[in-house]
Amino acid sequence: MKDKILGPEIIKVEHLVKKFGHVVAVNDVSFNVRQGEVLVIIGPSGSGKSTTLRCLNYLERPDGGRIVIDNIELTHEQTDINAVRAEVGMVFQQFNLFPHLTALENVTLAQRIVRKRSKEEAEKIAMELLEKVGIPDKADSYPAQLSGGQQQRVAIARALAMQPKIMLFDEPTSALDPEMIKEVLDVMLELAEEGMTMVVVSHEMGFVKAAADRILFMDAGKIVEETTPTELFTAPKEERTREFLSKILH
């Protein structure tokens, strides 16, 4: 699985800058992601990793630099940002399921109003995806009736229903009880094996070992080190990376 063939570059980030008031959250960050690649961004809190990820679908508007996704420049004025977002799935730390809709309706809503699919078609796709994430029996449950792990799996199904070319994961397991982390990671691993392009902000080293093709270590808004899983665990180059790893690997 490690020697999978990667496609052309689908995400290009050049000199990305994002400020919140006077605080520079992301400071001149550049990286590329190739089709089918799984990129994991790690780093201490406040290092700008989530902000970088959120810039990739324009939930944060960059203050400088260029972002090109699938040959469409996000940072260009005329770009239809909604059209790009439909191609980029996002999974949030807090799941953000729509609490007034059932699991099935959560997965069908955007299909129907963005992709303009018929009710039957959207529901068929939704059921397939709920089966894929292992909870077809919860289709008619409301989010409040689901466990955290189940909610996050519905959220993944909801994003996949748009048939995105890229999936972004913003600390998808950080809000979960320990015994639910695995069920979400298993779904993510399956996606990685199917060749989905993924950018993941996570500290799940199990996932990093099993699925990451490349790792960015960020600190204070900058990329400190770019490495592979093998290198990261055996011989991290930078002192800052070593220090961070010693704290999260017990």
């Binding site: 439909a86 399921l97 109003i113 959220a155 909801r158």
Partner: peptide, 9 residues
């Protein structure tokens, strides 16, 4: 954010 990330206006 979740709604917008799915491509909704």
């Amino acid at each position: 954010e979740a709604a917008r990330s799915l491509g909704m206006s």
